Amino acid sequence: MKIGTHFAALGAVALVAAPAAAADTITIGITQNNVGVDSYQTTYERAFIEAADADPDVETVVLDAGGDVARQIGQIQDLIQQKVDAIIIWPTNGQAVVPAVRQADRAGIPVVITNSQIAEAGFDFIKSFSGPNNIVQGEYSAQMMCDALGGKGQIVQISGQPGYTTAIERQKGFEDELAKSCPGVTIMETQPGDWNREKSQRVMENFLTKYDNIDGVYSGDDNMGVGALNAAKASGRADGMVFIGATNFAVGYEAMGRGEYWGSVYQSPVEDAKNALATAKAIVEGEEVPFLNYFDTPKITKDNMSEFEKPVF
């Protein structure tokens, strides 16, 4: 019998008490990074809840760390005490959560990491990673930047949250691929935008003040990329400047349609959420799943955007 999805209040560590589930029900707990920081994570949570509610065999405990590492560690420990059948973690920090993940492993509870990878030190304590290949996404963005600039130019980079695995991997994939395939394109400076549009706009304003010539901007996601675009438009310098991002947000899709945004990487939070839930359920039921269970994230530009639905986030 399906019981329902239960929540802990944002900022609280203790779980909301849930009625006992039926014997054949799988209980899966999830602790997310920071639902309120952007619309991708908000959409992910909604899709996760909808997928769980549609499955009569699954009971879920849905938690959000609010970007706080200590809170997330506490949530993992509470899920262990709750003796859930599996734990899904969207890490606030891939290194800091390793000890708590080790505790779950010692308790015999399988762990699935979703969206952003855990540090390699934790690989022995998880069953699977479910999400995008962020190294490849960075490589795709570098290839698009190279194509857009014809192999030469000077660019700036706005990275994600420092210490966050997705930000680290996308930056590494972008920089390594650019150096290998497009040495004529130089990264003048990199500053974090923390996945935040307003902060990224301020970062770009500083870049525009500091550099007289900027041919392109690479941002770790479209939310930050549109912040950079807004700054360039406000300064009157957006024309001819190439904007490349990742995780194609609705605002990036719309800017692409207007010809203001050159390219991105298409990533669905709905597929991300469904894949994580299905992976955790399969593991509990004894099925074999890939350790790196990636879903597809293709390149998207104005030339092929008609093949993709406008993102809902």
Score class of each variant (00 low, 15 high):
residue 197 R to A: 13
residue 292 L to V: 08
residue 242 V to E: 07
residue 141 S to Y: 02
residue 287 E to Y: 13
residue 72 Q to I: 07
residue 294 Y to R: 09
residue 213 N to P: 09
residue 280 A to G: 09
residue 110 P to V: 00
residue 50 E to F: 06
residue 178 L to A: 02
residue 20 A to Q: 10
residue 99 P to H: 10
residue 236 G to L: 10
residue 53 D to S: 11
residue 249 F to N: 02
residue 242 V to M: 09
residue 172 K to G: 00
residue 25 T to S: 14
residue 122 G to A: 08
residue 236 G to M: 12
residue 236 G to S: 08
residue 156 V to Y: 05
residue 93 N to F: 04
residue 223 N to Q: 13
residue 56 P to V: 04
residue 59 E to H: 12
residue 282 A to C: 03
residue 57 D to P: 00
residue 69 V to I: 15
residue 283 I to P: 04
residue 3 I to Y: 13
residue 264 S to Q: 06
residue 33 N to P: 02
residue 211 Y to V: 05
residue 166 T to W: 11
residue 74 G to H: 05
residue 104 A to L: 05
residue 204 M to W: 07
residue 195 W to Y: 15
residue 20 A to G: 06
residue 72 Q to T: 06
residue 13 V to W: 03
residue 285 E to D: 14
residue 155 I to M: 15
residue 202 R to N: 15
residue 241 M to G: 01
residue 46 R to K: 15
residue 111 V to M: 04
residue 108 G to W: 09
residue 197 R to I: 08
residue 184 G to T: 15
residue 64 D to Q: 07
residue 35 V to Q: 11
residue 272 D to T: 12
residue 262 W to L: 12
residue 183 P to H: 04
residue 255 A to R: 00
residue 1 M to Y: 12
residue 283 I to R: 01
residue 83 K to F: 08
residue 199 K to A: 09
residue 227 G to H: 03
residue 205 E to Y: 02
residue 290 P to R: 04
residue 35 V to I: 14
residue 57 D to F: 10
residue 188 M to G: 07
residue 47 A to W: 07
residue 276 A to S: 15
residue 183 P to S: 00
residue 24 D to I: 08
residue 249 F to W: 14
residue 1 M to S: 13
residue 289 V to E: 06
residue 6 H to P: 02
residue 279 T to F: 05
residue 81 Q to L: 14
residue 162 P to R: 01
residue 149 L to A: 09
residue 123 F to D: 15
residue 214 I to K: 02
residue 247 T to R: 10
residue 230 N to T: 10
residue 118 I to H: 06
residue 83 K to S: 13
residue 190 T to K: 10
residue 147 D to V: 14
residue 126 I to A: 00
residue 29 G to E: 01
residue 292 L to K: 12
residue 103 Q to G: 01
residue 220 G to A: 14
residue 147 D to N: 14
residue 177 E to T: 14
residue 103 Q to N: 07
residue 174 F to W: 06
residue 102 R to F: 11
residue 80 I to L: 04
residue 87 I to Y: 04
residue 160 G to T: 11
residue 308 F to H: 10
residue 179 A to H: 11
residue 30 I to G: 02
residue 110 P to C: 00
residue 9 A to E: 11
residue 311 P to D: 05
residue 167 A to I: 11
residue 226 V to L: 06
residue 59 E to F: 06
residue 254 E to C: 09
residue 98 V to C: 06
residue 301 T to P: 00
residue 78 D to M: 04
residue 215 D to F: 00
residue 252 G to S: 10
residue 211 Y to K: 07
residue 197 R to G: 03
residue 68 D to M: 03
residue 234 A to L: 09
residue 38 D to I: 00
residue 12 A to W: 13
residue 148 A to L: 03
residue 71 R to L: 13
residue 220 G to C: 12
residue 202 R to W: 01
residue 67 G to F: 00
residue 173 G to D: 01
residue 230 N to P: 10
residue 124 D to A: 15
residue 47 A to K: 06
residue 66 G to W: 11
residue 36 G to V: 11
